[in-house]
Structure formats: C-alpha cells, structure tokens
Design a protein around this nucleic acid. Structure first.
Lengths: 197, 197
DNA sequence: CAATTGGCATACGAAGCGTATGTGAATAGG
DNA sequence: CCTATTCACATACGCTTCGTATGCCAATTG
C-alpha cells in the first residue's frame, strides 16, 4: 500500500479532465464555468490551477486525451483493409465519422483551434494526421499516388475537407442522405491524388 | 439638410464595426474588451448594445462586411478567366490567398465558427461558397466535372481544404515554399472532380 | 516521531459583461 | 416657432468569472 497517494492524484486529474471534457463538449469552452465543472467533479478551481495551470492547459489535456482515442480508432480500422489505398480511404472516412460526434466536433474542430490556434502546431495531438501522412508517403512509393505532392500538406488538406464534411452531415436535416453525398464528394476529391496509370 | 441624423448613425455603426474588426482580427474575439475597442472608436458599450444587441451581434456584422469584400474579390478574379474550369480554379486559389490575411483567417475561420457555429448556417455570409457552387453546377452541365456530385457539398469540402492550406502557409517558416506545396496539393485534389474523358 | 513536501481549498481583487436608467439633441406636429 | 416625443448613446450598478495569494491537512521521508 505505497501508492494510494499517486492514485488519488491521478484520479483527480482524470476527474477534472472528464468533467471539463463534458462541459466543453456540450456547452462549449467559453461558456463552461471553471467553478461549475470543477464542482461537478467534487473539486474546486484550486485543483485545476494546481494541475493544469489554467483553463487553456486543461483544454490541452482534454484534447490530448481525445486525440489518443481517435488515433486508436483510426489504427484499428486501418489494420483491417485489404489494400493500402483502401486502408487510406477507410482512415479518412473513419475520421469523418468520428468528427460527427458533437463532443469531438466541438472540442477538436471549433473551440480547440479558436483557443489554442492552428491544430498543426499542437504537440500532443497529431496522431491522426501523422498516420495519414505515413500512408500517403507509402502510397507514393508504391506508385499509387502521384509523386509531386507533399504528404503532410495533403493530409492536412484532406483533414480540412473531412471536418467540413462532418459539419455538413451533423447539421443536416437528413443526415443519412447528406452523409451519402458528403462521402461521395469526399472520395471524389481523393481520386485526384491517384496516379491515372 | 434633412439627413445629418441618419448619416451620424451610419457613421457610428461603421466606426464600431471598424474598431471591432481590428480588435477581433488582431487580439481575437475572446480577448477583445468591449470597453476598450468601443473607447478606441470614441464611443462606449452603450452604442454597441443599442446597435448590435450584444458582442455576438457585432461579430455577425463584422463577418457580413468581410464576406462582402471577399465576394467582390472572388468575382473580380472569376471574370478574368479564359475557361470556366480555369475560372473555378482561380476562384479557389484566390480564396486561399485571401485566407492568408490574418484578419480574415482569425475572424472568418477561427473565432467566427467558434462563436457563431457552422459557417454554412450563417445567413449573411455565404457569397463565396454560393459562387463556387454555381460554377460547379455549370461545369457539371458542360460535362467537365463528374455528374454524381452535390455541388454545394463539394464547394464546402473545397472550402475546408482551402482554409487548411492557408493556415499551413500562414504558419510556415518558409511561406513561399509552403505556398507552392499547398497550392499544388490543392490543385491535385481538384483534379479528382474532373471527368477523365 | 518530527519535519517537510505538496495536493487542494479558501479568500480576495480585478475585469468583463448585460441591464436598467438617464440625458440631450434631433425630429415631428400644431 | 414652440412643444412634445423619439431615439442615439452614455452612465451606473450588480453579477459572474477569472487569476493569485494564502492557508491547511494528509502523506511521505529520514
């Protein structure tokens, strides 16, 4: 019994992150009162400032957690594809699906960039783009994707298109139909990357 | 001399919008104190609340103004292209160029969506996307762009990719080189829309 | 068992925002 | 030309939120 201390600390960190994640994901970062959501975790702002420095620091922690989860899901999907191109496309569509969740959309694609700036500059949250970049590079070497293309740049552009696709689906009256249209348009764009052998 | 009154009102509105636009574009919406930037316009928050209801209302007005300016620029470029496809591509690259300006990037692509939600839902600011949608539709009818594609959806996706491209360029160490790479990747994506006759 | 670390709460001051209210000038009606 | 009313805008107030400074208590260390 030499670790209850460390465990308690980890637990309060986790509780704060969970409470903040819920608040940020529902009412949004700006509207989320630190007093309120720390209290909902049975704590006060004192704990928050101690562990994360300030509200932004807590947002970073939340983002890092979500990014990790997204990377796991993307990798799972990627491991189940017959070809590498299919693997790449599946990754992208999975990305769109994930971005459909209000919590992810709000935190990762709206409040996050507004508060912390360009996502490309986030150190702790680049797993998904890194994966896509890797696949693009490999696809280039295999001669499937055109050569004169910077992989990371392309991955970022695709990322931008993905998040737009998700927003469009999420805000649609008829999500099913919109989803079909958005994914179709998205795949069409991706075709532009292929070498027309 | 029956209109000095109306003129004064329009002037204060314009001064508020200008001051807010500058503040939002530099330090950002959240950090911009209403007391500060209204004072910089020689006014107080009283005028702001009277004309725009609240801070969000003023942001909407700023966005409407910027959107109008962007539409003008896009249309200028579009009117000087030999072919319609070229016209479409030029519009897109112009869009990227405009998004390079810090003020536009900050207000239209970061703080705007975070505060007001999905840009697709903005009533007063859709001129650019509308133009692109129109061109895509025409290109489909001309048989240049693939048919099974929802034009507005495609326009939105392209929009997302554009803004990512701009961010990448804007935050780059070597903007010139990054710009080349980003525009190349972007055009490559657009190729996916063309019919491979 | 004493000393010290450090995790977290409490207390305080400073902004910022929204609303309610006030004021003076321009318009409209007689 | 004079009065009444509107309305653009300023002022004043209370509330909420944030950041910092301080204090306390439990757990670790020697």
């Amino acid at each position: 019994m030499h670790r209850p201390r460390k465990e308690m600390i980890a637990e309060t960190r986790a509780k704060l992150i969970a409470a903040a994640r819920h608040a940020f994901g529902t009412i949004g970062y700006a509207e989320a009162s630190m007093d309120d959501f720390t209290a909902s975790a049975g704590l006060t702002r004192g704990a928050l400032y101690h562990h994360f420095g300030d509200k932004k620091g807590l947002l970073q922690a939340v983002i890092a957690e979500i990014d990790g989860e997204m990377a796991v899901r993307v990798n799972e999907v990627a491991s189940r594809a017959p070809t590498r191109w299919q693997c790449f496309v599946d990754e992208c569509t999975t990305y769109i699906e994930m971005a459909l969740e209000p919590e992810i959309q709000r935190i990762m694609f709206r409040d996050g960039p507004a508060v912390l700036g360009d996502p490309a500059q986030w150190q702790n949250a680049n797993a998904c783009v890194a994966s896509m970049t890797g696949h693009l590079t490999a696809l280039q070497e295999e001669g499937i994707v055109v050569r004169d293309l910077d992989p990371e740049t392309a991955a970022r552009l695709i990322n931008g298109a993905s998040s737009q696709a998700s927003q469009r689906i999420a805000n649609s009256k008829d999500p099913e139909a919109t989803s079909k249209k958005a994914i179709a348009a998205f795949k069409q764009l991706l075709e532009g990357l292929r070498k027309k052998s």
